[in-house]
Amino acid sequence: MAKMLYGATMSLDGFIAGHGGDMSWLKPYFGPDPEMDSLVHRVGALLVGRRTFEGDDPNRGTEHEGAFGGAWDGPTFVLTHHVPADPVPGVTFMDDLESTVAAAKAAAGDKYVSILGASTARACLDAGLLDEVLVSVAPVLLGDGTRLFERPGGDNVPLERISLTHGPLATNIWTRVLPR
């Protein structure tokens, strides 16, 4: 059965996107990282929030545009309040979290469903649907932007560390979400 994984690169002060959703801050931290590079082969489907789907790609216009630096080629499910009238090849738009997660898990088989987008990850966490979190911590302070998890008034979420690895440009912390 597929597991739900939220993976993101985060600044040391907790931001995954800069002010206004700017993702260009990531460029200096692209590079070989065995932990992150092997992940794409363990993912069977993407669950993407609509803002992330339409958002800033630091690789836009290059051969590395798209998820996993352009290496992703598989089913993509976009969670949105407004399903577009015109289809996008290879992309399924859905408007219900539980149905979208179920469809993504079915498509992923025994691999991960990789969640892209802070709001979508938070919704999965709040619904008890998030299994694991993989954060690559980059040595930079952004000062403002989109936080990894923004949960004002939220409760504590216990995590169990699965692994800690050091890539040449960032530190990777892989955790399991424990029952609350």
Rank of each mutant, 00 (worst) to 15 (best):
A2R: 11
K3V: 03
K3G: 07
M4Q: 06
G7Q: 15
A8M: 15
A8I: 13
T9E: 15
T9I: 15
T9P: 00
M10K: 03
S11Q: 04
L12M: 14
G14D: 13
F15D: 03
F15C: 01
I16H: 07
A17W: 09
G18N: 02
G18I: 04
M23A: 15
M23P: 04
W25D: 02
W25F: 01
L26R: 07
L26Q: 10
K27F: 02
P28Y: 03
P32A: 02
P32T: 02
D33F: 06
E35W: 01
S38V: 00
V40S: 05
V40H: 06
V40I: 15
H41I: 00
H41E: 14
H41V: 03
G44E: 07
G44H: 06
V48H: 07
V48A: 12
T52E: 02
F53S: 03
F53A: 06
F53W: 15
D57I: 01
D57Q: 00
N59A: 08
T62Y: 00
E63H: 06
E63D: 12
E63C: 00
H64T: 14
H64I: 01
E65S: 08
G66S: 03
G66N: 02
A67S: 14
F68E: 10
G69S: 06
G69N: 07
G70A: 10
D73Y: 05
G74Q: 13
P75I: 10
P75D: 11
F77E: 05
V78L: 05
L79I: 10
T80S: 15
T80C: 13
H81I: 06
D86L: 01
D86K: 06
P89H: 05
P89W: 00
V91I: 13
F93L: 04
D95Y: 00
D95V: 03
D96W: 03
L97A: 11
L97C: 09
S99D: 13
A103R: 09
K105T: 12
A106F: 06
A107T: 12
A107H: 09
A107P: 11
D110Q: 10
D110G: 04
V113L: 01
I115M: 05
L116G: 15
A118W: 02
S119C: 00
S119R: 10
T120F: 05
R122N: 03
R122D: 02
D126G: 02
D126W: 00
A127L: 07
A127N: 08
G128A: 11
L130H: 02
D131K: 00
V133C: 00
V133S: 00
L134A: 09
V135Q: 01
A138Y: 04
P139K: 13
V140E: 09
L142W: 09
G143H: 04
G143R: 06
D144T: 15
G145D: 05
F149I: 12
F149L: 12
F149P: 02
P152I: 10
G153K: 07
G154N: 10
N156Y: 02
N156I: 06
N156P: 01
V157S: 01
P158F: 07
P158R: 04
E160S: 11
E160R: 14
R161H: 03
S163E: 15
L164H: 14
L164F: 08
L164V: 14
T165M: 11
A170H: 12
T171E: 13
T171D: 12
T171S: 15
W174N: 04
T175W: 13
R176H: 10
R176Q: 11
V177G: 07
V177Y: 04
L178F: 04
L178C: 10
P179G: 12
R180M: 01
